[in-house]
Amino acid sequence: MNHVDLRLYGIIDPERTGGRNPVELVRQAVAGGATLIQYRDKHAEGRRLVELARALKMALEGTRVPLLINDRVDIVLAAGADGVHLGQEDLHPEDARKLLGPHAIIGLTLKTPEHADALAHMPVDYGCIGGIFATVSKNNPSPPIGLDGLRATLARARNASRGPVGAIAGIDASNAEPVITAGADGIAVISAIFMAPDPQAEAARLRRIVDEALASRSVLA
Results as ranks from 00 to 15, higher is better:
21 N>M: 10
18 G>Y: 06
32 G>T: 12
33 G>A: 10
19 G>W: 09
19 G>Q: 13
16 R>A: 12
13 D>R: 00
29 A>G: 13
20 R>V: 15
12 I>D: 10
8 L>W: 06
13 D>N: 10
35 T>V: 09
35 T>L: 04
20 R>F: 11
22 P>E: 03
25 L>R: 00
9 Y>V: 03
8 L>N: 01
35 T>S: 12
15 E>D: 11
34 A>L: 04
23 V>S: 01
25 L>W: 02
21 N>L: 09
32 G>P: 09
16 R>S: 09
33 G>S: 12
31 A>T: 10
13 D>K: 01
26 V>C: 06
7 R>I: 08
22 P>A: 00
35 T>F: 01
27 R>S: 03
28 Q>W: 02
27 R>M: 04
14 P>A: 00
25 L>D: 00
20 R>T: 14
24 E>D: 10
17 T>G: 11
11 I>G: 15
29 A>R: 05
29 A>C: 13
19 G>V: 09
29 A>H: 05
29 A>L: 06
28 Q>F: 04
9 Y>F: 07
13 D>P: 04
33 G>L: 10
16 R>I: 11
21 N>V: 08
21 N>T: 15
9 Y>C: 03
30 V>P: 04
18 G>M: 09
14 P>C: 04
17 T>Q: 09
22 P>T: 06
21 N>H: 14
34 A>F: 01
34 A>Q: 05
25 L>P: 02
24 E>G: 01
24 E>V: 14
18 G>C: 07
27 R>E: 09
30 V>T: 02
9 Y>H: 06
10 G>R: 05
18 G>E: 13
21 N>K: 14
21 N>P: 15
20 R>Y: 14
11 I>L: 14
14 P>V: 08
14 P>Q: 05
10 G>I: 13
13 D>Y: 00
12 I>K: 03
15 E>L: 12
25 L>S: 01
28 Q>A: 12
7 R>L: 08
29 A>F: 07
31 A>G: 13
36 L>G: 10
25 L>I: 03
33 G>P: 15
35 T>K: 00
19 G>L: 07
27 R>I: 07
36 L>V: 14
26 V>W: 05
19 G>I: 13
11 I>K: 07
8 L>V: 10
16 R>E: 14
30 V>R: 00
30 V>N: 02
18 G>R: 10
7 R>D: 12
28 Q>I: 04
7 R>Y: 11
35 T>H: 04
34 A>I: 02
17 T>F: 07
34 A>V: 06
24 E>N: 08
21 N>D: 15
20 R>H: 15
22 P>Y: 01
26 V>F: 09
10 G>M: 12
14 P>I: 05
31 A>D: 13
17 T>D: 12
16 R>C: 12
14 P>E: 05
16 R>V: 15
36 L>N: 05
34 A>R: 01
9 Y>A: 02
27 R>K: 12
34 A>E: 04
9 Y>W: 07
22 P>M: 02
15 E>M: 11
10 G>S: 14
18 G>N: 10
34 A>K: 01
12 I>W: 12
28 Q>G: 07
